[in-house]
Amino acid sequence: MKIRSPRYHREVAQRYRLEAAQTESGKIFFPPRVAYPGGETAKPVVLKDTGKVLTFTVIHTPPAEYSDLSPYGLGIIETDCGARLLAQIVDCDVEKIEIGMRVKFEFRRMRTEGDEGLLCYGYKVVPE
């Protein structure tokens, strides 16, 4: 299903700038939410752009929109401020990805909506 403008535009702050929210008790939510567990309030924070790989896979049979990238690494990243998110691990030999590997975030084109549609951008990680 193609990504259209409203859906894309809504996520820009998170995908372009890693904007998140931190509750009073210190937990970071990415993306920010409307409400937080326990009725806590949260203030805006920006995630650190470095972190490490907690677990990962290498996708050999990707979704159609990502087929040109195959095979690509994909991992759960813990940022150096303690937030967790999923990101592609690129610009490296997929055989060399390992748990604990240090990574940094870069701005990348995630997918293109055919020859006519939007170009969709966001974050991926590369070896630090």
Binding site: R7, E11, R15, F30, P31, L54, T55, F56, T57, I59, T61, P62, P63, E65, Y66, L69, Y72, L74, G75, I76, L85, L86, A87, Q88, I99, M110, R111, C120, G122, K124
Partner: peptide
């Protein structure tokens, strides 16, 4: 969809990450 699917994950991929862990 926005924070897993957009990254190019598939269901085999999600369970593969559990398997790896």
């Amino acid at each position: 969809t926005e924070y897993e699917g957009y990254q190019g994950v598939t269901f085999p991929g999600l369970y593969a990450m559990m398997a790896r862990a």
